[in-house]
Amino acid sequence: MFSFSFLVYAFLGALLSGISLAVFAPFVTLRRISYLGEALSHIAFAGIAIAILTGLNLTVITLIFVMLIALGITLLAKRHNIQESNTITIFLSLSMALGIILISISKNYSFDLSSYLFGNVLLVTKSEVISLVVLSILNIAFVCFFYKELFYLTYNPVMAKVYRIRTDLVNLIFMLLLAANIVINVKSAGIILVTAQLILPAVIAFNFVHQLSKAILISILVAIFSAFIGFYFSFQLNLPTGACIVVFEAILYFISLLCPDG
């Protein structure tokens, strides 16, 4: 019974992690902010360090920290007309530096960098599966409801402003949700898989379709399919699940290049 539920949670963790990130992947890819996903997952490092040092709930503290930084990046880029990429790099460096200082202060704690980088889907708990279900529903609801605003925000934010499309609020929610996705997914998926899942399903989808709504759907299907295949091989060959999913998605990507539109 124990091994069964642990496997079910692990599989659901991999599946839901893929779905939640795949919903955002087409927007992240088209806005060319895939580095933001990676940066936010590194920024989470400082949040983790703060939680360790203060002894408070790791997920809650990291979530609050990363969301605040995401908010900071959005506001700073808007108010001071700084390129988002520069702001992200500033916060990324600051958070990593802060994280390392804080980890070194808490000398008694041996931080497992490997699990932070690659995650461990086998450690996913029931409550984390529930968080991932809620997150996936929130993501899908957000994208469905604000599809029009997200579409034009992604196309050209300046012209969206000219035509009075209210992209400010939508962009803010997008950034906060993206931050939440990264924090909640880092434990099960790790930074490497989170970054891959924010890009690969979408670039595969765009090699088959040229319509955003269809690309979102295909991106989700790619994530689901990859979770099944990746999990199967990981279980059969006793290999790390996250890494198997990434390798399978990369193979799918190269196959998708053979598509006439690829």
Binding site: F145, F146, Y147, K148, E149, Y152, Y155, M159, A160, Y163, R164, I165, R166, L169, V170
Partner: peptide
């Protein structure tokens, strides 16, 4: 359609 998008309420579809 972008020229009309700002006239629609937040979240409304064409």
């Amino acid at each position: 359609l972008m020229g009309l998008a700002g006239k629609l309420p937040l979240g409304a579809h064409f």
